[in-house]
Nucleic acid binder design. Structure first.
Lengths: 353, 353
DNA sequence: CTGTTAGCGCATTCAT
DNA sequence: ATGAATGCGCTAACAG
């Protein structure tokens, strides 16, 4: 039988008014021990559970946090959502989760869906945090939100992220220190993504500082598979003066690129070194392990929730919090080969013919 | 400014009653073109968005689907949730997401949280679907739910899964066909998990059918890291007649085991073959690629939602739907070595000293 | 075709 | 310390 059990049922059973029941439940006012015991007994016997809906309608606030991410399939977002979930649970809040499937056009509609549910606040990762109509809307309605992964300019919007430019610079410098001079930059489909842009900037700065030529980013379809990437990479890495290293804008791309190079008969890291960005757990498990920038993804989700509740409870002003990152050395990043691959005595043979 | 815009505001602006506004919004009754135009104009101008809460309080039904999984960090669950999210979105529903963090004791409380939010139904993965008090509760309150991954006995409970026993049997047979005779079975921490048990049964059946000795499962800490697994595996694989293959109850475990063996100086697949179960995407990306059972994880989530709505709308009876699986060959599964490892002329050297 | 009205479950005044 | 009464935003039943 469904829940015909309301606060009224409990009140009748306990022989008191619904107001008293409410007071017992929420400890919002003192009640006599006698009545309280009767109410609690009635609640247990009836299996009563206060309806969040009734409560929400009254207070116009729900105990839910809206979450918007590009995709759950990317471990980076899954990890930050896991952090959001854990932190929200500590505050007795539930997650209302939506994903855009990498369609920036879907952001607005999905956020409105969440807003219509009267979420207490939002934690979201958008394609681009600057000049984002959706975020403007949230601000206009003064609905608190915190960005994750996005790195907006200034402190106008609350965000938890890493210093993408600095991290990519550090990674680039590590490649240069390993002897690489021709380093390609491979980006996922969305060059418009703010973090992707910042990462590229970091790469460019490091290259320039070292007196090297920063290549234009080669854009690969983020959602493409290894074969499609192999086709796109064949040209670049078939040239006489092909790059000896590939910096990928994120780990998922790096994994795919590694596989694509392998399919082309190009050995990683003997012929070409590869590095990613994010630090997904499975980069550690593969062999050779993936060199990357380790970012505290889960922690970012947790911090975002903490910041969100600060804003809700104390009206704290938005700010950008940059969490520490670290370089993760990995087997995919080795010293640059001494000779050009074309003169290699043992010609590479495709491993997956 | 927050939303002081209610259906009443719209009605005033459009010069009609709130009932008419409601009718326009929901197309629940015919309205004159004239009034409808005025109402729509008012809605646009005011930026009105009907409150899901008010609607829910009235109808006692929300447009949300509750989701409970062990963890988002496991790509298997992330993938099925992605499927759930996509299918739910098609039906204009949002996900209320919670995770137990592999604590079966948390299931009940979290499900009650979801129920208190009046979810339309639930999609969940529990530790064990049989004799589960939480599921009993849902049935008692006749709240529709569909299990994912779990493989309950009979057809008493709705579920979308694969035939775990048959799949593991097929995988075991593939190992036997590759010449392996001593095959270890490594299980995650929760041998009580119904799917883990069924998988072991499939292994056992295949071994017996081939006249081989089925080993007792070696239980590893599911959440453990590679070093802890290495310690646990050192004994088993250090024996004179060590297994030549390891069947792991899931892919995440297989990945960790592969790394642990490598750390022990045991080469995969030259010395020991490894296989997993689930078919996570990253098993393909690693090298050697992971041999495993490919399960349609995302599809399982989608089907679960479809089944859920069948139950909600047509009162369809619960049933277990077993989706097709396939064996994914991978570099970690090779022919059994001809000679025992102990007599190998080139002693293994640790790759990660 | 449209307006009036009565709750849905709860928190919260205002009385007592 | 407790009860009666009000209304949050909306849908639906009923009147017109």
């Amino acid at each position: 039988m469904p829940r015909i059990v309301t606060i009224r049922t409990v009140a009748e059973r306990a022989g008191c008014s619904i107001a008293t029941v409410s007071r017992v439940i929420n400890r919002s006012a003192p009640t006599s021990a006698d009545v309280e015991a009767r109410v609690r007994a009635a609640i247990d016997e009836l299996g009563f559970r206060p309806s969040e809906i009734g409560r929400a309608l009254k207070t116009l606030k729900t105990r839910t946090v809206g979450v918007l991410i590009p995709s759950l399939t990317n471990p980076v977002f899954a990890a930050s959502v896991a952090g959001v979930q854990a932190a929200a649970r500590e505050r007795r809040h539930t997650l209302l989760l939506t994903a855009t499937d990498y369609d920036p056009g879907a952001e607005a509609e999905l956020v409105e869906t969440l807003v219509a549910q009267n979420v207490a606040g939002l934690v979201l990762t958008v394609a681009c945090a600057s000049q984002n109509a959706t975020l403007d809307l949230l601000e206009a309605e003064s609905i608190p939100f915190v960005l994750v992964h996005n790195e907006p300019e200034g402190d106008a919007r609350a965000a938890v992220c890493v210093d993408n430019a600095a991290a990519t610079s550090a990674l680039t410098e590590a490649m240069i220190a390993a002897g690489h001079r021709r380093i390609a930059y491979l980006a996922g489909r969305f060059a418009t993504s703010d973090r992707s842009l910042r990462r590229y900037e970091g790469y460019r700065a490091a290259m320039q500082k070292a007196g090297l030529v920063a290549a234009a980013p080669l854009e690969l379809d983020y959602l493409g598979d290894a074969p499609s990437h192999a086709a796109a990479l064949a040209g670049l890495f078939g040239e006489a003066s092909a790059p000896t290293a590939a910096l990928c804008s994120n780990d998922l791309l790096a994994l795919s690129v590694t596989g694509a190079l392998r399919d082309l008969g190009i050995r990683v890291p003997d012929h070409v070194s590869v590095a990613g960005f994010d630090g997904i757990a499975l980069g550690r498990a593969m062999s050779p392990s993936l060199a990357t920038v380790d970012t505290p993804t889960r922690l970012m989700g947790e911090r975002a929730v903490e910041m969100l509740f600060e804003m809700i409870e104390t009206g704290a002003a938005p700010r950008v919090e940059r969490l520490p990152f670290s370089l993760r050395p990995g087997g995919t990043l080795a010293a640059a080969p001494k000779r050009s691959r074309r003169q290699d005595p043992t010609p590479p043979t495709p491993l997956n013919p």
